[in-house]
Amino acid sequence: MDALAFYIFAALALSSAVGVVVSKNIVRTAICLLGTLGGVACLYFLLDANFLAAVQLIVYAGGTLILIVFGVMLTSQSPWVVFSPTRGQVVAACFVALLMATGLITLFISTDWPTGPAAPLTASPKVADVGTVLLTQYLAPFEVASVLLLVVMIGAAYLARSEKQ
């Protein structure tokens, strides 16, 4: 049952990722990204990372993706303008990507991963555990990240403001 679910969600994520690459229309690309994000969120549920799955859906699908679509609307001359790369660029890119995929997969499969903790993991980390770790062990990165978000907020507002005012 778990294996079936994994294959379904992995197929969703992968096929949408292929869609991202091949679709010419930028809004369709963004919608394919939604498929990938949703598939990956379902995989997080399978990996017992419920909190992460919910954050992925809220921040990525509900926030970042809307921002991207918004950006598309604000920056397009006409909805059907398509910039296509030259054939040489495509061939080179495919070659690099194929090389990278084969290299990574060979590496992952040939590595003998240590078998993990001695006892089988009965209790996977809950939301409360993630929160505890976030506010004790990783307090410094957490604070840095919040400062970074503030900087990003001010920076984005500064960059995007109209020049004339």
Binding site: N50, A54, L57, I58, G63, L65
Partner: peptide, 20 residues
């Protein structure tokens, strides 16, 4: 255990449909 976040996420994705 993250029911609240899940429901909020679902309400957030709905917007994308309207924009599209």
């Amino acid at each position: 255990d993250v029911a609240l976040l899940f429901i909020l996420a679902m309400l957030g994705i709905e917007v994308l449909g309207v924009i599209l």
